[in-house]
Each structure stands twice: as C-alpha cells, then as structure tokens.
Design a protein around this nucleic acid. Structure first.
Length: 509
DNA sequence: AGCACA
C-alpha cells in the first residue's frame, strides 16, 4: 500500500530510504566530501552532488538501509550538526529508493564528456564556445564564474594546459535540453575538464550578447570515440581538418559559418565589438581610443554596459583596419596582469550613430571644439561635471574601483613600441597620427599613484597588452563572440544622449 | 532550506 502520498511532506516524516537527501551544502560540494560525511555510518555506494537549482543539494546512497538510518539517527540526536566544510548540512531520507544515474563511487571516468548546457538559450550556444581552446582560455583567465557568485573568479592558478586537446565534439538536442559530447584523448584530461567546468557558467563574452546565461553540467559519457562525419555547426572533428564541411553548415544562416579548420568565420566588419573582461581597472573611452588608434584612425566609439560587462563598439573607416586590430588585440589585456582583457568580434554595424560626445561615446570624425579645446584646469574645479567636453582623464567608469590606469603620457613615446612585443602591425611607429592630442588621457598627479590596495597584484602601468602569449594563443585560436548587438535606439541603453552615466551630468549651459 | 535524466 502506498501510504506515503497521503502524508504531508514534512521533514521528519519521510519513510526511511538508503538514499539520503542533503541540502544546504557548500558550493560545489564534491563527491569525496559526501563520502567522507557518510562513511562513518556505512558504505556509500553512490552519490549525486550539485543537485537542485542552486546546486547545493546532494544525495548519498548507502549500501544498506540501516546505514542510512544510522546516519539520520545520529544527527537527529547529535548536538553537532552534519557539516561539510564547516557548513551545516541538513539530512533527510530521500523520497527515492536509489540514486539513478551516473556517479557510482567507482564511477566510470571516460575520455568523453556529456555536457548539458542549461539555460533558456542553451541551444544557441555555438559549438565553438565548447571547444577546448576556449575552455582553456576560460580557465586560464579565470573568468568562469560560479552561478552564485557571478563575479568571483576561479583560481587564476588554473593554467593554460590544464586540459588536453579536444578531439571531437558533437551536439544534439533532446528533451532534456541542449547537450554535447566532448571527446578528449584520455579520461584524465576529460576528468580535469569535468572537474573544472562542471557547474560553471559560460562567460558572457563567449556568447552572443542576447543569450542568457548558460550553465554547464558535465558527466561522463559511455562513448569512447565519437563518429563525426562532417564539420558542421553540430559536430566537429578537430583531429581531421580535411573532413568535409557539411553543406548544411554553410547555409547563410547566422552565426555558424565554418572554416575548414572548424573556425567560425564571422562576417568581417569595419566595426569591432569589444568586450572587456576582468575589468579591475577603469577602461575609459580615451583608453580605448588610444589602444585602437594604433591600428588606424578610429572614427567612432560607443561604450555601453551589456549584462553588467563593459562593451564597446569601435569603428574604423575600413574593414582591413578592423581586421588587423582584431587580430592583434584579441585576447590581449589592456593592463598588465590580466586586467581588462579584450575580446573582439566583428559588429554587424558599419556606421555607428553617435548622438552625443560624452565619456561613453564619441564621434571623432566630427570636429568638436569642446573636445579639442579642453580647459586645462577643469579637473581641479569640477572633477566630475565636465564630461562631454574633453578627455577628462580622471573619469572612472562607474562602479569600478578607482585604480586609474596609468597611460604613458606621450603618445609618441610608444606605449606600443616597447610594451607590445608581438604586435604584428608596426603602425604605432609613426606618431599615432590618429590620436588627437586632446583625447589622450593626460597624466595628472593623482593618476599616477596607485591607491594602495593591498591585494592588488603588481601593476606595471606602462605595459599595455602585457599578458603572456600563452593566454593569447590559448584564446586566439578562435572566436566565439557572435555579435548580434543592436545599438539601442532608446537612449537609456548606451550610446545615446542620456546615456551619461551616473558619475556626472552634462552641465550644458 | 525541501528531491535529480542523459
């Protein structure tokens, strides 16, 4: 008889089961920790962690019902609650009799991972995003974030070669959602990838702007070798660049244009979309202008916030310049130490409409007396209220700690020449003719000093793009940012007139 | 703080 269903779901009324349901677990509780917790009471034969919307629940299955009862009984009368990592864990009998699914303690780790992409727009995730080069980049620059702690970086110590080569990827859609099988050469690398990525959010910059956050859930697959017949938007074989490209993959549809090597070919544009990651320091319009001017005249820049991250559209007069800039700058950091890392993609825009020159958007093609002729001492007078007039070198992006990046004062002194080792384009040798002097972030006494923040890594201001090549190559391989951004016509969103951020009001006379 | 499928 099923008498269970008639009972209200109160916590102490669950009928015993050798499966225990745990909640309030610390983030990313591991199977090992679960086993540790249950081991004193019996043999843990199976676990399942990261359960539930918050992924802070888990199940423990004992070999014997009495062991489960022993654990429940113990903690029911113990003065010390069950704890994992010092956090109190709540136990109860599960309403299931066994843990279904993968993880047995003697789990079968394989070289193929089953990746479930959770999120409303999961199926919009490009296969390139899943590719290892990105994954490596993701890990190495520590931008994978916990769902609960969006801005918390994974250990930076997780470095470049954490995983091995991804051989193949297939993606498919089932009722459960969008999934992918990712094949590594061996179970070890697969395991390291799994451990590092399971439960993580795909960084925003890897996704189209309008894709909502996607979480990775990773288990082992039983497969050992995937069969990929075509390179397509659904499957890739990175071991065989000569594999024919599926015709279906080339059809003009949006984002999935493939190169033979599996690279996605974005339609090139004279307008670049820059996403700035790990923005520990303010990135101002002027900084962007200087950086991008190294490759040619920057016509327009529009900065805006997208999902809490800073993005910018940079317009060159021609596509070639944009290509050069993109290739040279992609993956580089504006500031040494991995700060303010640039991710570039081609915008769909070809001509930005800049409605007003302020600290977030500027049209450099229109001579603007107010811009060209800054009053020299406005900073001292009204630090914040002078925007829209000139460079305002000390303006900070809103919400960013006031670690003003120190930019070499003289444009011609070569922030590029000495500090940019492998830049393919020597355009910065000439005197950066594209940088109007007034727009250079000028040094003010206050800018030079580093607010003495203890924990900040060594900051070597003169190094722009000071990041190691390792990271670059890890990421440079491929591009994922698919830019579907529309410049919002409504002023609130970004480049419009009223987009003036909270740091100041245009005191227009 | 309240039960998971690929």
């Amino acid at each position: 008889m099923a008498s269970v269903s008639s009972q209200p779901q109160f916590r102490y009324t669950q009928p015993p089961s050798k499966v225990l349901h745990l909640r309030n677990l610390p983030w990313e509780c591991t199977e090992e920790e679960l086993i540790e917790l249950g081991k004193p009471f019996g043999k843990v034969v199976n676990t399942k962690c990261n359960v539930g919307a918050n992924r802070n629940q888990a199940f423990i299955e004992f070999a014997d019902l009495n062991q489960a009862i022993a654990m429940i009984s113990y903690y029911a009368s113990s003065s010390e609650p069950a704890q994992v990592r010092g956090k109190t864990v709540y136990l109860q009998y599960s309403n299931r009799q066994e843990i279904v699914n993968n993880k047995t303690t003697a789990d079968i780790a394989g070289n193929v991972l089953l990746v479930t992409i959770e999120g409303q727009d999961a199926r919009l995730v490009s296969i390139d995003v899943l590719h290892l080069d990105h994954v490596k980049g993701i890990i190495s620059n520590g931008s994978l974030v916990h769902p609960e702690k969006e801005h918390m970086c994974v250990s930076e110590a997780m470095v470049f070669s954490a995983f091995g080569f991804v051989h193949k990827i297939t993606t498919f859609e089932k009722t459960a959602g969008f999934q992918a099988l990712v094949q590594f050469s061996d179970a070890e690398t697969a395991t390291s990838a799994k451990n590092a990525l399971d439960g993580r959010i795909i960084p925003r910059y890897l996704l189209s702007e309008n894709i909502s956050p996607c979480t990775l859930r990773i288990t082992y697959s039983a497969h050992t070798d995937l069969s990929v017949k075509f390179q397509s938007h659904r499957s890739r074989d990175y071991t065989n660049p000569y594999l024919p490209v599926a015709p279906s993959a080339i059809d003009g549809s949006n984002q999935f244009n493939l190169g033979l090597d599996g690279k996605k070919l974005e339609p090139e544009s004279n307008v670049l979309l820059a996403s700035i990651e790990n923005m520990q320091y303010a990135v101002t319009l002027d900084v962007l202008h200087m950086v991008f001017s190294a490759f040619g005249p920057v016509q327009k820049i529009a900065m805006f916030d997208k999902n809490g991250a800073l993005q910018a559209l940079i317009q060159y007069p021609d596509v070639q310049t944009a290509i050069v800039a993109k290739e040279a700058l992609e993956g580089h950091c504006i500031y040494d130490g991995g700060f303010c890392k640039l991710h570039l993609s081609y915008s769909r825009h070809t001509d930005l409409s800049i409605k007003v020159n302020n600290d977030r958007s500027r049209d450099y093609t229109i001579p603007n007396p107010a811009m060209v002729n800054p009053q020299p001492s406005v900073l001292g007078q009204q630090p914040v209220q002078t925007m829209g007039h000139q460079y305002n070198g000390t303006q900070y992006a809103p919400g960013i700690q006031q670690q003003q990046p120190t930019i070499p004062p003289q444009p011609s002194a070569g922030w590029g020449s000495s500090a940019v080792p492998p830049m393919p384009q020597p355009m910065m040798n000439n005197h950066n003719p594209y940088i109007p002097p007034a727009s250079m972030p000028q040094m003010t006494p206050g800018m030079m000093q580093m607010p003495g923040q203890g924990g900040i890594p060594p900051f070597r201001p003169t190094h722009i793009f000071g990041i190691s090549r390792n990271v670059q190559t890890a990421i440079a391989a491929k591009e994922t940012c698919i830019e579907q951004l529309m410049i919002p016509p409504q002023p609130s969103a970004g480049c419009g007139a009223s987009a003036v951020p909270a740091i100041g009001v245009n005191t227009d006379k």
